[in-house]
Nucleic acid binder design. Structure first.
Lengths: 150, 150
DNA sequence: ATTGGTGCAAATCCTTTGCAATAGC
DNA sequence: GCTATTGCAAAGGATTTGCACCAAT
């Protein structure tokens, strides 16, 4: 089922699964591929719809379980931005901006410098392994509408 | 209904509501007071239970609507940490750490320096008005259990 | 007197659970 | 063959909606 093009990209998932004693299943491969194909965050539902095309029988709980696993393996970021959870396989350092008006989520490129806070967490007995920044505000369109209606 | 002690603290809410053309209701006062009394983040459900004691008939949708409004007014922070939304009226600069194991949310004192990212967002046409950092990892207890079971 | 807020009931949305069948090791 | 993973159906929990009544301005 794996094409030559995808084999290289699938490699890291296969190795991580084996290393952790998990099984390599087509659902897992297809779901990660789908997340990587779209270079943006998407919901479990969107992934489910896309995955159905290559793997018609795929069930909702499988999608959720797999997304959880991919997050655990560190291959996917989970973004909690108020609505349904978003999943993101984009690897470049970037954060997310959420519009208070329309709920849209936008990428903001740039590295997050949270070392002092991670250190503070560590000193308080917490073992951090990552951090997510959510910027909130108004997107261009919603800011414009607010101004017009005021 | 307002006691002398609370009047001072309620003042900012009353003024903000008036300024924005909203009405001053006892539900709004009581919900904000409750959030301020507990110096930690809590769920809508917890607030609801607490508010029922002084305002027995209070309905779920009222609690949600009021919390939304308080967040809009900038008096309360909303924290999306994977489970039910948390609301926090603590004013000292601090962020939150969420345990992957038990889901617990802990305060991490310290100011967040996200100016470069906020600037990047602004340059991309977004109008930021705040940012929330969620640190993820394992709390002391869960980290211990993982080690034991390994 | 107006109309924004509230309470109630019910709906909706997202996510998880329980269990039998399947497929990876 | 053993057991993790899957699919299916259904439950569960959080939040929102629609509408009638109430109460702040």
């Amino acid at each position: 089922m794996a094409t030559a093009m995808n084999t290289i990209r699938d490699q890291d998932l296969v190795e991580l699964l084996r290393a952790r004693g998990h099984r390599v299943t087509s659902q897992r491969l297809v779901i990660l591929r789908e997340l990587r194909r779209r270079a943006t965050h998407c919901t479990a539902e969107e992934i489910h719809a896309a995955v159905r095309e290559s793997l018609p029988g795929t069930a909702t709980p499988t999608v959720y379980a797999t997304l959880d696993l991919l997050v655990d393996l560190g291959l996917v970021r989970r973004i909690d931005a108020g609505g349904p959870a978003l999943y993101d396989a984009r690897v470049e350092p970037h954060q997310h901006a959420v519009c208070r008006g329309c709920g849209g989520v936008y990428d903001v490129d740039g590295r997050l410098h949270a070392e002092p806070l991670l250190r503070a967490a560590r000193e308080a007995g917490f073992n951090p392994d990552g951090a997510e920044l959510i910027i909130s505000g108004l997107c261009e369109r919603c800011a414009g509408q607010t101004r017009e209606s005021a």
